[in-house]
Design a protein around this nucleic acid. Structure first.
Length: 251
DNA sequence: AACCGTTCCAACCGCAAACGG
DNA sequence: CCCGTTTGCGGTTGGAACGGT
């Protein structure tokens, strides 16, 4: 519900959801005059909004270079890895993901990653300079690498089936498992094969080439102390389950 | 169909950092 | 250096959408 806040007798500031008309006014104004001063601009553009609200709307929703749609496996991997090293420094994490905003990443963390990664102690460097230094020193190699837009095992240039050291999993457009390197969709054995110096390669299958879909939910019996449930209801949860399962194996 | 609980995310708020006169 | 203004950041929340009963 949009509200009106009266600042002075004659002018007011609109709050709440933006209308398509307001969006268009903001877009048109910025396209014509660029961003020169957020706090003064709304008045000139004819918007009854605070500069803060305009800035947020532009940065998080209207800018043309924003990437829309769900996070890719690679993006999830980056967010996960950077959160482990940087904590809740969303804007620093966003710099690694072109087209994604800090707000979007923060939301993504709270809705998808929190339950898997838990909360990390807040990292609060004294200055942004220190923060930058910390960020530079925290680069880690990912355990799992991703190869988006690769066709999969039928792609002759990527014949993983003859490789003794690689495993693969392909998904259909719903991220249901299509095929694995051991030919019997046995995710368990793939995860069990993980060694310290291994990467797991997750292939995203080409949606056009998918022919079948099969549901897959497996309980991995890792050892006498650990059972891990891996399911493929969506790419994010599947990836995280697999990631954590593989990571636990390294202990 | 109605209700209720949950999930998700756009947008808010307060505060801190950066800027500029 | 000081101080007022502007910009940027992260936590929080309202409410729409969804799913289950």
């Amino acid at each position: 519900m949009a509200g009106l806040v009266f600042q002075h007798q004659m002018d007011y500031v609109k709050k709440g959801a933006w209308s398509p008309e307001e969006d268009q006014i903001l877009i048109d104004y910025i396209m014509k005059y660029n961003i020169w001063n957020w706090s003064h601009m709304p008045k000139f553009a004819g918007l009854s909004r605070t500069g803060k609200s305009c800035r947020l709307r532009w940065i998080n929703y209207l800018r043309p270079d924003l990437k829309k749609g769900p996070f890719s496996i690679e993006e999830v991997e980056i967010v996960s890895r950077m959160y482990q090293s940087l904590g809740n420094r969303w804007s620093a994490i966003a710099k690694e993901l072109p087209g994604r905003t800090d707000n979007e990443i923060k939301n993504f963390y709270h809705t998808h990653l929190k339950k898997h990664l838990g909360t990390k102690d807040e990292v609060k460097p004294k200055s942004r300079k220190k923060a930058k230094q910390l960020e530079m020193s925290n680069q880690k190699k990912p355990l799992i690498t991703t190869c988006p837009n690769i066709e999969g095992p039928n792609d002759q240039s990527l014949d993983f089936t003859n490789s003794s050291s690689s495993s693969y999993i392909t998904f259909d457009e719903n991220y249901e498992i299509l095929e694995t390197s051991n030919q019997d969709n046995d995710v368990t054995s793939i995860v069990n094969q993980v060694h310290d110096d291994d990467n797991i390669v997750i292939l995203e299958s080409n949606p056009e080439s998918s022919t079948s879909s099969s549901s897959s939910s497996v309980d991995l019996h890792i050892n006498d102390f650990m059972d891990v449930s891996v399911h493929s209801s969506n790419v994010v949860d599947f990836w995280l389950d697999l990631y954590l399962a593989a990571d636990n194996l390294k202990i």
